[in-house]
Amino acid sequence: MSSFNDPDAVARYLEGPIAKVPGLAALHRMAELLLAEVVPDDGRMLVLGAGGGLELKAFAVARPGWRLVGVDPSAAMLGLAEETLGTLAPGIQLIEGYIDDAPETTFDGAACLLTLHFLSPEARLHTLRELRRRLRPGAPLVVAHHSFDTSEAGKTRWLRRYAAFASPSGRLAPGADAANAAMRERLPVMSPEAEVRLLEQAGFEGIELFYAGFTFRGWVGYRV
């Protein structure tokens, strides 16, 4: 994730999710609605991987009473989040770091969007367990990230579809296969079935799939 500390890459960051994640605004809206089923109007909400600020802004606009805490390891990305939030920024606590740097307090809900696919299964399990530890019993966690068939044929098929979706023409751009090969190496993607097992292992129950957009999947689960 070194690119998140590259000023040029950070400046262009917001273009990526909007172009490459199917229904990004709807994903944020669905996440907010699922969280709001349990999180009170003045609830305390943790957003892990908050750099860029898109989900923070969506949550803050829809639920102005939520007390939002955003955590991200990149100072540059947190700076971009402040820009995205604009006048909303003073009401939101932004923390540079990883899950272990998040406040040792009890949250009413949490979200981690477009982040966990960067982590190894071991680091992902640790992160999920630490998220759980910071949630009150019954509190919701919403996650969404790359998750698809991880067989060799499945990876090829889905990454080519991902690249075609991200292309304005809907066709694979020159160099797409090389970019897909880099993604294979860089991202420790897990299958949807493995993702659910990991959430259960971390101490979440009632896990439901709520979002599927080509290579992306999203689940909601609740702290045991």
Rank of each mutant, 00 (worst) to 15 (best):
I207F: 04
T150Y: 04
L34A: 02
E83M: 12
K155T: 13
L14Q: 12
V142S: 01
R29C: 11
F165I: 06
S2P: 11
G86M: 02
R160T: 07
D108A: 01
T84L: 03
L68I: 10
A102S: 08
L128E: 04
G51E: 06
T87D: 15
S120Y: 11
V143L: 11
L198R: 10
A111K: 06
S3T: 15
D149Q: 01
E55S: 09
T84V: 04
R186M: 11
F107V: 03
S74Q: 08
G43R: 03
R160H: 12
A123V: 12
A31M: 10
I18W: 12
A178F: 05
V143H: 05
A76P: 05
R132A: 13
W66R: 01
V39F: 03
Q93Y: 09
E122V: 14
M1N: 12
S2Y: 10
T115D: 00
R63S: 11
D177E: 15
H117S: 11
G218V: 01
A202I: 00
T215V: 14
P90T: 01
I207L: 09
R29N: 13
V196E: 02
E200R: 10
R133C: 05
E205H: 11
D72P: 07
W66N: 07
E152G: 12
P174A: 05
Q93T: 15
A31Q: 08
L78M: 06
A31L: 06
E104Q: 14
R67Q: 15
C112I: 05
V21I: 09
G175M: 00
D149G: 02
E82R: 14
A153C: 04
R223W: 03
L33S: 15
E185T: 13
V224E: 14
T115F: 14
T105P: 05
R197I: 11
E185S: 10
L78T: 00
P174Q: 03
D100H: 15
R186N: 11
G218T: 01
S169C: 00
A9F: 14
P40I: 10
V69E: 06
H145K: 08
L198N: 12
R223F: 00
H117G: 10
G53W: 01
L113Q: 09
V47T: 02
D72M: 06
G49A: 07
A123H: 15
L94N: 04
D149L: 03
L198Q: 15
